[in-house]
Amino acid sequence: MGPSVPGQLSAYVAYSKSASVSSGILRRPLSAVGRTAQSTAEHAGEIALLLSATVRSVVRLQVSLRSVLQQIYIMGVQSIPIVVVTAVLAGIVTSQQGGYQFQGAVPLYILGSIVVASVVLELGPVLTAIVLVGRVGARITAELGTMKVSEQLDAFHALGRDPIAILAAPRIIAGVIVVPVLVGIANLVGVLAGMVAARMTLDLGYESFLYGARLFWHNWDLFYSLTKAVTFGLAIPVISIHMGLRTRGGAAGVGRTTTASVMFMTLTVLILDALFPPLLLQ
């Protein structure tokens, strides 16, 4: 049993206890906000340092052309099949759903415009980026994370080599080059798939489809699509490399970091995608 407390004092003790409980209730969410802000600032700072080190290594001509070409092959050429399959399905689904909504309401040739705009402005760049997050980004994080926990990155330093010039820069350069090309392929294939699907299921002729596509086409849309692609092509390798380089904790750590990296990249792609219309489609 605790010590006895006089009347007024016990009221104060009860008040201060409830105040400490309520400050405890406040402390948790506030400290969570603080931790998130600190973590965000750390990520932003490390990504800025990574980018500046990459630019430095490019300017000093420390990046091997062979490594860049190798990464272009791995990230670009090897990704073509999955990007094409995704684009075909996106084009078919857009065409089918558009046809379902418009039949009997508006002239069906408008479908050409809907498919082209949907694929070029949104589905081509975003679906390609999401596919590359899984295929390229996860691979980069796991690869660099494994190198980090097995001291291979330290070994580069020990040999007087810069891991940024050897590992990071070629992947970032390759990303900026290959993603716009892949998005271009996805746009073309998606539109063609939508056109063929409209012909086969809605009996909309190719000429009508193309007439509708031309009716509302702006050249700016292609620029918009490719600008998105360049942005995603920079974001995916930069984030995946950044996450790989901060891996710790053995094999389990590689798994944890790769999962976090995929979430980070996916969210970043979607947030960047949401920022594009107010910036470039006014």
Partner: peptide, 25 residues
């Protein structure tokens, strides 16, 4: 770093590179 020979706990061979590239490094 060029003067010091350092052997890492996990051997730290570059397993993404071939033998020639490991030596070349």
């Amino acid at each position: 770093r060029y003067k010091v020979g350092y052997v890492f706990q996990n051997s730290a061979l570059f397993d993404s590179l071939n033998v020639y590239e490991n030596v070349e490094m």
